[in-house]
Amino acid sequence: MKLARVVGTLWGAKQSDGMHGRRVVEVRPLGLAGATDGTRLTADCDDVHLRESSMLALDPLGADVGQLVLIGVGSRIRDLVIGPRATTKACVIAIVDEALVEMSPGEGSP
């Protein structure tokens, strides 16, 4: 599971059956390279903590753009959170209020 920020939503009429009525969000995972002891990760934290790459996830919770979310990837998670026939492995499983870094992750952390 990883923390990410919602940067946008996507829509398209032509889609697989397993996507019908589902909300797709684009998220950018947080990178902790610049974090130190006491760094608070919240919805309005700096963009320096965001990684370059983005990914797409199904969002059953209705997260808003800018919010921090918890992303789970895997078929088991998908089965439990959305359903066994959804065409994704990545989904939003929580809308995070705040995370607190209590130790500097050090150099070279992913």
């Binding site: 940067v7 946008g8 939503t9 996507l10 829509w11 398209g12 009429a13 032509k14 889609q15 697989s16 397993g18 996507m19 797709v24 684009e26 983005s54 753009v65 065409t87 994704t88």
Partner: peptide, 9 residues
């Protein structure tokens, strides 16, 4: 799984 018509990003 989807052809994107639009995006708010």
């Amino acid at each position: 799984v989807q052809i994107v018509d639009g995006s708010s990003t």
